[in-house]
Amino acid sequence: MNCSYFKDQMLLYFGGKYLPEELRRHLAECSTCRATWEELTGVSGKLGADDLFFPDDVEVDWLVSAVDKDIEKREPRPGRVAKRIRQIWYGYVPVAAAAALALGIALGTYIGGRTTFDPSVAEPAGGVDSIASFYETEDEDLDEGTLGTLLYDFTAQHSFNASEWLLDDLTEEELEFLENNFDVGDLL
């Protein structure tokens, strides 16, 4: 590398604390470049340092107090994450809340409709059929809990005469199975 390369390096490293090894070696060997570097170092000394332009403590007090007063009236702007949360909160949450409300009303109406079932209008066959079909297909798996559920469901829908309808529609085998396996009391 020739002197022009190192002259360029000297311009870049002017004022810096660190000198690259290759430049250091070249300065030790080349008197022309060393003279240039010494000249630059002399100029650097004339520029002082950062603290040559520092305001004094009284002025700093005044400036700090002015900033304090100003920020007292302000709050920091929310960060990016907070901004995103806020966007979601104000953008999507009302829509989700409205959808949830509509769903709630629809479900409420549906469930309300089911609980006001009128046995005099509707046929009770579904409950009986379901028990019968259970016997036909899964009588080995039919346990006390399942039967209880079916009975409860049926009686809830069909009021007090439900047991009569149930008994009327049960086959001999079904009655026998109930008697043998469950404590049905006065039901039969």
Binding site: D51, L52, F54, P55, V60, L63, V64, V67, D68
Partner: peptide, 14 residues
Amino acid sequence: FSRLVRLMMKNVVA
């Protein structure tokens, strides 16, 4: 933050 301002004010003013 006020302490930060005090620490850095001279540098920024310069």
